[in-house]
Nucleic acid binder design. Sequence first.
DNA 1: CGGATAGTTGAGTTATCTCAAATGCAGTGG
DNA 2: CCACTGCATTTGAGATAACTCAACTATCCG
Lengths: 255, 255
Amino acid sequence: MASVAQSHVIADEALPRKVHGDASPCASCPTWELSLCAALRKDCATEANGALPMSTVHTVPARRTIFHPKEWSEFVPIICSGWSVSSIALPDGRRQILSFLLPGDAVSTAFLFGPLSGRHVEAVTEVTYRKFKRSDIRALLLGNPDLFDRLSKTWIEERVQADQLALDLGRRTASERIARQILNLAERLAKRGMMSGQTMDFPLRQRHIADAAGLTPVHVSKVLGEFQRARLIEINSRSLTILNEPELRLAADWR
Amino acid sequence: MASVAQSHVIADEALPRKVHGDASPCASCPTWELSLCAALRKDCATEANGALPMSTVHTVPARRTIFHPKEWSEFVPIICSGWSVSSIALPDGRRQILSFLLPGDAVSTAFLFGPLSGRHVEAVTEVTYRKFKRSDIRALLLGNPDLFDRLSKTWIEERVQADQLALDLGRRTASERIARQILNLAERLAKRGMMSGQTMDFPLRQRHIADAAGLTPVHVSKVLGEFQRARLIEINSRSLTILNEPELRLAADWR
DNA sequence: CGGATAGTTGAGTTATCTCAAATGCAGTGG
DNA sequence: CCACTGCATTTGAGATAACTCAACTATCCG
């Protein structure tokens, strides 16, 4: 319950902050199961040994950029709370969301080893995150086989995700893609204890879903409309409930 | 010029083989620049030191499976010669090609650390490849910081490729995707010294291009037809020439 | 309350798909 | 050598998923 030091690096204004009701070694990183953050967190705990310098928590309001595509910094952000989105864009404005980042997520494992040019990371809700220095992480990993194992698991998972994304975008219909996005998010949130039953906070705008699924916001609206009329899901006041999971799964795999 | 031991693990029949006119330390791996194979090759050279057990070269005819989606083996293939294709598929037959593998390519860096379920690797032409044992590679990498650097570079490159693939599939038109595939292949072949001027061997069937671009073979045929009528490229007898690179680049980025 | 952002809905357009038939081409067995 | 079979490619016609545009409504936030 210690109050955490905050700095506003990218956001200039001070902002009201949510309070995490969690007194783990790193109060601002409520969840980290299975994620790389797990590994890093573990070492935050031993920071007294000088393993990894304690990093400050940064806070950023909704819609603000967390990492700029041209930034060539030696720091890697890891999300502590809130939702954000990692994307790449074309000069003409078309853009593709590569992943939604939830608490405990790093942008990409690859990001830990070098700058990933063109990646844009942007807050959806208010977000808190930590920045780690690449060289610190690198040294830590090379010196610690357990950590390295963890990393390589995350790495494989990430590759599988990327494969699935390509399959979705290249070969699945609009409804399938959208249904899958929802189920995916539900699963990831569940892992973090962020589902209440079949209901989740759902701060995404339809343009987020559209950019993630390679569709138009208008079309997303139509498909979500159908899903709701068919009582598969229900959306209101920024929260989404899965009403009929089996059917939704069917829609996700359909054909 | 030493004749290399061959075993036919997946292919049962003995087959006529192309001869590589190349006498580098590992005659069956003609090119490896920038790829992970580079790193592994380096150590093949020092195998006398016992760094990495010398691996046998396997030969497989066109269209044959090199790595089965359900295979859970501790061996990782690296392509020595020929073209192959790495893909994932849906039960109903829809499939997405994730990358074309050229000489020197491993399937994925992630693959070096654990099995990647669902991946299918299939020969397009006759292919030779080597199998490395995962545990050997892992030990080698952890003990050798230089190699590890190399690996992490490859890894970042791979991540960038995956990002671009998603952007292509989600946000680009059919012509853009196809033009980009061609330019991409040309560039990769050039790095390996496998271009003669603007002409390359082009063993891909249109269904390969279709599955890589998330399109229908029929549509691919139409687009390639247009490209040829517009004198951007020319295709005959399994070889492709870029006639007007600037225009082709324009088509690739167009909008 | 007012302005901005987000979502809905309908009408019409277009890129891409499906189906189908015709052609080519490569390998096989008689 | 030929006929045959199986794949690859081309082409056209029609269908459809997803897009664009535009107007309207709802929601959010100061």
